[in-house]
Nucleic acid binder design. Structure first.
Lengths: 185, 185
DNA sequence: TGGTTCTTTCAGAATAAATTGAAACAAGAC
DNA sequence: GTCTTGTTTCAATTTATTCTGAAAGAACCA
């Protein structure tokens, strides 16, 4: 039987590997590696940690740790805690992956899709009107309008979908997802 | 009534704005701005364009254009065409947004989620076994396993979902999405 | 109040990613 | 074969992003 220490080493190693692979994926999604690693660390250890512990474990500077933690708080996927008799702030990750996922989707819609939608509406409204043209040009303008409309309609559907399932209150998504995969093939 | 030239200027301006806002969003999703802009340009103009036209319109180098186009082809959201009597290659964007969306999701799952899943399985299998420990340590190892399992189960559900709806053949997603937003609240 | 502990900020440094441009490569045409 | 036209590659450069560390800012205590 493995010793307590060996077990603990292996656990730490597994955690580190989890953190690293999580961080690796982050880049592909426009999230900074450190931010993702901090989140992964809090998630996989399950323990509240303070800034110094996170700094030490991830080998990052105090400034970086502070900013990454702040960003995770803004995303709503970690929260502050306190330890009796300790003035330091502790942070812990939301342990419910689906709720975490909802937070991320909600934020990304708000930050990226909503502004894009607003811009596209503007563009549509300032595009030349087809009815003032004729012949080939009219055709071209109509096609332009159609493409804009289709993009708008797609994004609006996505928006509604996300509100429907990802709203602060309603869960449902998890159930729906699992049900949908039931009817496989 | 506006002159043909004014109309055309306005159309070009609207296209440029579309291209710019599309490119802007790309960064947030881990896609290079230029690649997104090239795609937006092909989508919004609806016309097949060759490398030189894309270079000129986006003000980028030949090398950059070539690499961005290649990447879009790899993603399967643009395709090659040819013009009679012209040796240049032309490129055109898939005009169906939902099919485009399916291609993107399919590729991202393949490139990012699948490898992550593989790594997580490995990590799970090399994590220390709880049954060789006792007391608090056993509890800790069990909790670690549980967190890994939940993450794996989440990602697997996502994988299945994406295969279900995003598969090369089946569409369905569009209909499902629209239906789901029908029962709005 | 001054002292202590912890947190945030931000200019500059380090690092990573995108872009260029020229050379190498391909595919006809003749 | 050579010449022409079009495409790809990649080392060097430019640009953008992330990270650091020290200083400033809070919050609490006695």
């Amino acid at each position: 039987m493995a010793s307590r220490d060996t077990q603990h080493e292996k656990l730490t190693e597994a955690q580190d590997r989890f953190v690293a692979s999580w961080g690796q994926m982050a880049g592909a999604w426009g999230i900074s590696r450190t931010m993702a690693e901090a989140h992964a660390l809090l998630y996989i250890t399950g323990k509240p940690m303070n800034t110094d512990e996170i700094m030490d474990r991830l080998q990052i500077s105090r400034g970086n740790a502070s900013m990454s933690i702040r960003a995770l708080l803004d995303w709503g996927i970690i929260s502050r805690t306190h330890k009796r008799g300790d003035r330091k702030e502790y942070f812990e990750a939301d342990q419910d992956i689906w709720s975490m996922f909802r937070s991320i989707v909600r934020e990304r819609m708000k930050r990226e899709v909503e502004p894009l939608l607003a811009t596209l509406f503007e563009i549509r409204d300032s595009s030349p009107a087809p009815d003032e043209a004729s012949g080939d040009q009219q055709k071209e303008l109509l096609a332009h309008q159609k493409r804009l409309e289709e993009m708008l309609s797609f994004l609006q559907t996505m928006e509604k979908l996300s509100h429907r399932f990802v709203s602060p209150s309603g869960s449902g998504l998890e159930l729906a997802a699992k049900l949908l995969t039931k009817f496989d093939k």
